[in-house]
């Protein structure tokens, strides 16, 4: 186990939540869940991602055009009312997730890929290499991600700050979980058999161990995604993300706040959209973690 890390709790909950990465053998009972139930969250996630991706096309009005008076209450042509500039809130919500989610996806993917690579290597190599990787990881984890992102955002652009901070704060966590799992898996019979056959380490890692980590990595990616989404939204609310008139859920939160007395939907709609995305994606990755990982 690695040193006393501040994020140790997260690490434990990742494993407990996913239940993935157990050594091959009899799987736990919960694998026998009914099919529709098991697929509920992933299906919801796919639907949501499609909706967010196609959202700009579904918007009834151009998201940056004035269609009514400022802060108008919901009515027939504007089901969620209008915002500070009289723009249609529904159209803006539909158009406002693409950028945010793509950024979060890129950030999460980068963190998981780097973390998994580092975890595979240090878990396989063990000993001094593992300790060094853990040491670097602890060092990175000592800096709070939001602070890191804020500092980076002043030097780089908001988007690169989100990606960099997500990687620096996320990859070490992924690396830990993966390294631990690899250390267990390498003692497994089929891995030992492959080694006995004379296969080289990279081949064993790629062909034997990586597939067994599928569920774990998916579950972990979900967590990284939710964190990256929050980070991207936070920077955006602080004005370090997309600039007006871009429709962006987080920017809409800030823009909608002054009008809560007149049209609360301008604030609530993007807030719910953000919350729903984080929740559904988190749940989906967890259930994917449960079903995946088997050999």
């Amino acid at each position: 186990m690695t040193g006393p890390a501040p994020a140790g709790i997260r690490y434990v909950s990742t494993r407990a939540d996913t239940g993935a990465g157990l050594p091959p053998g009899p799987r736990p009972r919960r694998r026998r869940g009914t099919l529709p139930r098991r697929l509920l969250a992933p299906l919801a996630a796919v639907t949501l991602l499609t909706l967010v991706g196609l959202g700009p096309l579904l918007a009834p009005h151009p998201p940056d055009r004035t269609v009514g008076p400022p802060w108008a209450s919901p009515d027939g042509s504007t089901p969620l009312g209008t915002d500070a500039l009289g723009r249609d809130v529904l159209s803006r919500v539909l158009a406002g997730g693409t950028g945010l989610l793509s950024l979060a996806l890129v950030a999460a993917l980068a963190a998981v890929l780097l973390g998994t690579a580092a975890g595979l290597w240090s878990g396989w190599a063990g000993g001094g290499a593992a300790r060094r990787v853990a040491w670097v990881g602890d060092l990175l984890l000592a800096v709070p991600a939001p602070v890191l992102a804020l500092v980076l955002a002043t030097a780089l652009s908001g988007a690169s700050a989100v990606v960099t901070a997500s990687v620096m704060a996320g990859a070490p966590l992924t690396a830990r979980v993966v390294a631990d799992e690899v250390a267990v898996l390498r003692r497994g019979g089929w891995v030992r058999a492959a080694v006995e056959r004379g296969e080289r380490a990279p081949a064993v890692l790629l062909r034997e161990i990586l597939p067994a980590l599928r569920g774990l990595a998916t579950a972990d990616a979900g967590l990284r995604l939710v964190t990256a989404l929050q980070l991207a939204a936070a920077l955006s609310v602080l004005g370090l993300g997309p600039q007006p008139p871009a429709p962006d859920w987080a920017l809409m939160l800030r823009e909608g706040l002054p009008g809560t007395a007149l049209n609360p939907a301008a604030l609530l709609a993007p807030a719910l959209a953000l919350a729903l995305c984080a929740w559904v994606l988190g749940a989906a990755s967890r259930s994917a973690g449960r079903t995946g990982g088997a050999r």
């Binding site: 500039l85 004005g239 008139p245 800030r254 823009e255």
Partner: peptide, 16 residues
């Protein structure tokens, strides 16, 4: 900036 309410709205609208 957002120092005073509506400063950002004004700029966004005028830009349009």
């Amino acid at each position: 900036t957002t120092s005073y309410p509506g400063m950002d709205t004004a700029a966004t609208l005028y830009a349009r």
